[in-house]
Design a protein around this nucleic acid. Structure first.
Lengths: 189, 189
DNA sequence: GCTCACATGTAATCCGTTACATGATTCT
DNA sequence: AGAATCATGTAACGGATTACATGTGAGC
């Protein structure tokens, strides 16, 4: 069977322990979401596919009268996960960043509007930085409990990433100060 | 008509001057590609749609017997572009990063394999950094010619972005040094 | 004569989101 | 009683990539 990145997110999550589809989503939302997001629309069909392929095994585990299926990774699933983790070749990286895109085309804006754009962008990353920082205590607790420090390190990476963008916005603003204003009047639009 | 981000990439590119679909792709490949990639499969159908909507205007401009259609942005297209550039609300940001994803799940790997993963990831970003640095002289020349400094600033931002990831890999390696090795032997898998 | 860059386009496919539909349990 | 959370799933849609198909012109 052909596995996509989403399949590996699920396998990876299940390797950390058996989970329901709902739990997988919840865990992903506070960890992988910031560098690989997944949605219910992928998770449930994919769980079915993975089970049919024998990479995971589902068991009914209702909480009261509430239906619930918990999935565990199989030996075959672990092999598939490891195969991916060690697979040679290029690592997929993709960025879609509307802020930088708008900035690139902002010669259609006035200087003032361009600076406002940078401010909006800065605020956005600052908020994301805060969001991640708020998760940190949970990750720290999880590390102490399970000894798994990778979640914490990944979160730190996510925070540093948002911090960089905040700094990049500041840097761009400084560069605009160097270039614009003093040349005042030569305004487009 | 509904416009997607790709439409605005095209409009933005055409605002900098009339271009063929081929030229739009070429320009995008050395500028927006790193934070918003586009492909021929989107460009040509989208050019048709945008022309039908009156946001751009195509003109036949063959180079010899070689067919070629050059598109210019219309007043209506400029309005649509500006509307987007100034549109309030959240800026879309999306990151898909296989390296960090694998790292997050690398408890299924040995310490050695995990460090190799970091090295691969570092090498990848270092290469991308170089790729971008190689474009810099072109961007500098373009600035001198056209006076458009936004391309240069955006490129600088792209370089800083790749540099950050190189640094993040180094940081992760240092953190592993703090955490692992000294606790040696407590190895998973 | 061959290869590379210029040039345009379509079809199949994949990947993913959003919206919808449904229902139980827990907490206030 | 009502809201929030737990829980599962599907259908429609949108966005983008890949592969394919075709052809010219320039330089070696």
């Amino acid at each position: 069977m052909e596995l996509g990145y989403t399949s590996y997110v699920i396998l990876g999550m299940l390797r950390k322990g058996p989970k329901s589809g709902y739990e997988i989503k919840a865990k992903a939302d506070i960890s992988t979401r910031f560098f690989w997001a997944i949605s219910y629309g992928q998770i449930y069909p994919e769980l079915k596919r993975l089970e049919e392929a024998g990479l995971i095994k589902g068991a009914s585990d209702p909480a009261g009268g509430r239906q619930r299926r918990v999935f565990s990774i199989t030996a075959s699933g672990e092999r598939a996960l490891r195969e991916w983790l060690m697979r040679p070749g290029d690592l997929h990286t993709e960025l879609r960043h509307e802020g930088v895109l708008r900035f690139f085309f902002s010669d259609a804006l006035s200087e003032k509007e361009r600076r406002e754009l940078l401010q909006t962008m800065r605020a956005r990353h600052d908020r994301l930085r805060e969001e991640l920082t708020a998760i940190a205590p949970e990750a720290e607790a999880a590390r102490k409990e399970t000894g798994d420090y990778l979640g914490l390190l990944t979160l730190e990476t996510g925070i540093a990433y948002q911090e960089l963008f905040v700094e990049l916005c500041d840097r761009l603003e400084r560069r605009l100060n160097e270039i614009e204003s003093d040349s005042g009047g030569a305004e487009d639009v």
